[in-house]
Amino acid sequence: MKISSAAIARRLSASAFCAVWFITAGMAFAAEDGGGHHADAVAHGGEHGGGPGLPQLDASTFPSQLFWLAVTFAILYLYFSRKALPEISGVIENRRERVQSDLDTAERLRKDAEKAQGDYEVLLSGARTEATSLMSKAVNTVKEKAEMEMAALREKGLEQIAALESQLTADKKKAMSEMDTIVAEAASQAAEKIIGIKADLGTARSVVQSLHRQEAA
């Protein structure tokens, strides 16, 4: 526990005040005693005739005490029951109600906040799933499209390859058939140059073709 110096000072001054007050009261009792000394003696000598009885047992004072006690009690009872106590209970009740209503408001606000939080979370998770599904849909669409295009491209490529291959085969055939002629020409020209025989081109081609056949066989 931490006590501030101001609090200590306040406590000290309160204690000092009490001490001074009590001591003053103590001295005042002594003064009262000293002052009343003579009157006391006179009173005892005169009134009570030196009787040592308790003043509380002096029955002659009873009616007066009872009367004024009844008056005091009646006044205090009326005052407390009609005014003071209803006022205090009103204030206390008022405070209790106020505190209760504040607590109720706080509770309501807390519930509202919790509900808002719940709504927000539901919304958020909904948005998240929606976003995920949209995303996957988009990805799928793109993928499908890409595959379709890819397939189209492949088909086209294959067609082109096929076209090229047939072209190539045709060219090759053509080139081969021309080759025979070239070979025959070259052979006839070579025969003419080497041995001086002017070979017939048609004969040369048939020779080449027969060679071809031999080779193929």
Binding site: T61, S64, Q65, F67, W68, T72, L76, Y79, F80, A84
Partner: peptide, 20 residues
């Protein structure tokens, strides 16, 4: 009946006054 206002009555009145 002697119902004199006494020092006792005075302090009873004082208690009413202080309470008020």
């Amino acid at each position: 009946v002697d119902v004199s206002f006494t020092n006792s009555s005075l302090w009873m009145m004082a208690s009413i006054g202080v309470s008020f």
